[in-house]
Amino acid sequence: MLLPHGTVFAIVDGEKFELYRNTGMESEPQLTALNAPALEATNYSAAANNHDKISRFQSGAPKDRLDKMEEAAHVTAVAQWLNGQVLDRQIDKLVVVADPKSLGQMRRHYHKELENVLMAEVSKNLAGRPPQEIIKVLHS
């Protein structure tokens, strides 16, 4: 996968949100960490709707259900923040890397404009991994 200069990478899981920008060349990417905003996960309604569908098939302790709702609310907040950045023209090329569950939740909240700048989605959990490992996975 070619990674143009200036591409923003959102690395997401149910708890973490990391941002990088390719400051290198397309052929030799160099991921530079950006300050990710401290997002407040407040959209529990979307998480609750998703949770209701899940809970019919899974039983779990209330704490486990709350954790799942918090994770869904977190990734929803990330998607909404990314939407805002795209609409404000702060991001014009985006790659989203997230674990499969988080990626599925985020897709429900993508704005059409975000979909237009989305270069790729990678369904892997790479949160907390070094930038070189992220690049290696994207090139494989």
Rank of each mutant, 00 (worst) to 15 (best):
P37Y: 04
P37I: 00
P37M: 00
A38L: 13
L39C: 07
E40M: 13
E40L: 14
A41G: 01
A41R: 05
T42G: 12
N43C: 00
S45H: 00
A47L: 02
N49C: 10
N49Y: 12
N50G: 12
D52T: 13
D52C: 12
D52F: 14
D52A: 15
K53V: 15
K53D: 14
I54M: 15
R56H: 15
Q58W: 15
S59V: 12
S59F: 10
G60I: 03
A61P: 08
A61M: 10
D64K: 08
L66K: 07
L66Y: 07
D67I: 01
K68V: 02
K68C: 08
K68N: 10
K68M: 12
M69Q: 09
E71W: 04
E71K: 14
E71I: 00
A72S: 14
V75F: 01
A77N: 03
A79P: 00
L82M: 07
N83E: 00
Q85A: 12
R89Q: 11
I91L: 02
D92C: 06
K93D: 13
L94P: 04
L94M: 04
V96W: 06
V96A: 03
V96P: 04
A98D: 01
D99W: 02
D99C: 09
K101L: 14
S102W: 04
L103R: 02
L103E: 05
Q105T: 13
H109R: 10
Y110R: 09
Y110M: 06
H111T: 07
K112H: 00
K112D: 11
E113F: 00
E113D: 13
L114G: 00
V117N: 01
L118H: 08
A120F: 11
V122N: 00
S123H: 11
K124C: 05
K124D: 05
N125Q: 09
N125A: 03
N125V: 04
R129P: 07
P130W: 05
P131T: 08
P131W: 06
P131S: 08
Q132H: 10
I134A: 03
I134V: 11
I134W: 04
